[in-house]
C-alpha cells in the first residue's frame, strides 16, 4: 500500500468531521434522532415517514452548498472534477446508486447511521456493517483497478 501524502488533507478532514459529529449530536440532543441519511431518505419515500424533522434535515443538506457557494474554493481541500456525461459513466453511476440504496435499506444504515452514529454508540451491529461495507468497497475498487487499469473517477 502506498500512502498518497500529497492527496491527504488532515486539517480539512478533522474540521469537516467535527462539523459532521456536531450535527449528529445536535440532532440527537434536540430531536432525539439518529443522523442516518439512508434512513431519512427511505422514510421520506413513504407517506407515513414524512416527519417535519426529516424534511428539515434533508433541506439543510441540500442548502449547505448554496450557502457555502461564495467560499467554496477556499474551504474545500481539492477542486471537484466533473466527468464527461457519457453512456458508460451514466450507467455506472445509476447502477452504483441503486446498489447503495438497496444495500443501505436492507442494512438499516450507511456511512452516517452506522459509521458515525452507530460507532459512537459502540453498537456491535454498526461495527459489523462498517467492516462489511468498507471491505466490499476496498475489494470493488481493487477489482476495478485490476480490470480497467485505473480507478473509475
Amino acid at each position: 500500500m502506498d500512502i498518497a501524502w500529497t492527496l491527504f488533507t488532515p486539517w480539512h478532514s478533522l474540521a469537516g468531521g467535527a462539523l459532521i459529529g456536531l450535527a449528529a449530536s445536535l440532532l440527537l440532543l434536540g430531536n432525539g434522532q439518529i443522523a442516518g441519511i439512508s434512513g431519512i431518505l427511505g422514510n421520506l419515500l413513504k407517506p407515513e415517514g414524512r416527519a417535519p424533522w426529516r424534511l428539515a434535515f434533508l433541506a439543510g443538506l441540500v442548502l449547505a452548498p448554496l450557502l457555502l457557494w461564495p467560499v467554496m474554493l477556499q474551504i474545500t481541500p481539492s477542486p471537484v472534477e466533473t466527468p464527461e456525461l457519457d453512456g458508460p459513466t451514466l450507467i455506472r453511476l445509476l447502477a452504483g446508486g441503486f446498489l447503495v440504496g438497496l444495500g443501505t435499506r436492507f442494512a438499516n444504515g450507511c456511512t452516517s447511521g452506522h459509521g458515525v452514529c452507530g460507532l459512537a454508540r459502540f453498537s456491535p451491529r454498526s461495527l459489523v456493517a462498517v467492516l462489511s461495507f468498507m471491505g466490499a468497497g476496498f475489494m470493488t475498487v481493487a477489482l476495478w483497478r485490476l480490470v480497467h487499469g485505473g480507478v473509475s473517477l
Partner: peptide, 26 residues
C-alpha cells in the same frame, strides 16, 4: 440483511464513489 446489505452498499459505493449523504449534498 445487515451483512449482505452492507456488502451490496459497499459495492455500489466503490462503483460510484458516493454514499447517501454526499449524493444529497452534491
Amino acid at each position: 440483511p445487515l451483512v449482505l446489505g452492507s456488502i451490496v452498499f459497499g459495492i455500489g459505493w466503490g462503483v460510484s464513489g458516493f454514499c447517501p449523504g454526499p449524493a444529497v449534498v452534491a
